[in-house]
């Protein structure tokens, strides 16, 4: 681990959130993608990318997921196909690091999608705000045990933002969740005192 790690704010982070038709990355489709970059520590709304995705043949939107994202089959049937969307995602992801809230969902779905279309996953560095929340909790327990709460804190995006003084945004819209994740990242980065990408 002696390689040089770049200063945290010299890296471009593409915050990403996807809405899916269910929770199983093997069977359920990606139906919406929202992305935007954090450059030099500033979130750039003007470069945001958001799109709905047409589910592949045979993959359905599960009714229980509709309750969250409010997207119906009819709304996404005219959207661009997954292949086109992945080209857009790929171009961005290769620019720097990928920033997600809970990679076990978002990154898994992406990897599976790449796989199905016969593409190679570019293996970008991934920064996961859920991991940062847990890291911060461990740090607090170590440095100031008296301040640490009895339980491990919630890693829910909305609840964590609220706890850290960030405003409420409408959840379950891919782009808004990506913005929410990017802002949360900036706060956590500061609280962790992270200086390089490796610290994150």
């Amino acid at each position: 681990m002696l390689f040089h790690s770049p200063a945290w704010d010299s890296v471009t982070y593409w915050a990403l959130d996807i809405e899916t038709g269910g929770l199983d990355a093997r069977r359920d489709p990606i139906i919406a993608v929202g992305m935007l970059p954090v450059r030099a520590g500033i979130i750039k709304l003007g470069e945001a990318y958001r799109t709905l995705v047409r589910p592949e043949e045979g993959r359905e939107i599960r009714p229980e997921s509709v309750r969250a994202h409010q997207l119906l089959r009819g709304e996404v049937s005219a959207a661009p196909p997954l292949g086109d969307v992945l080209l857009e995602v790929d171009r961005r992801v290769r620019e720097g690091a990928l920033l997600v809230h809970y990679q076990a969902i978002d990154v898994q779905f992406l990897k599976r999608a790449y796989q199905r279309l016969g593409r190679r996953w570019p293996r970008p560095p991934v920064v996961d705000t859920v991991e940062l929340i847990l890291k911060l909790d461990r740090k607090t327990r170590f440095v100031r045990p008296a301040d640490a709460p009895a339980d491990v804190p919630s890693t829910n995006l909305t609840e964590t933002r609220r706890r850290l003084g960030l405003p409420d945004y409408q959840a379950h819209d891919a782009l808004t969740d990506a913005i929410a994740t990017a802002e949360l990242f900036l706060v956590l980065r500061k609280l962790l005192g992270a200086r390089t990408l490796r610290d994150l």
Partner: peptide
């Protein structure tokens, strides 16, 4: 304006 909007966080 919306297209040029940025978000910053300052401790």
């Amino acid at each position: 304006a919306a297209g040029a909007l940025e978000v910053g966080y300052y401790p």
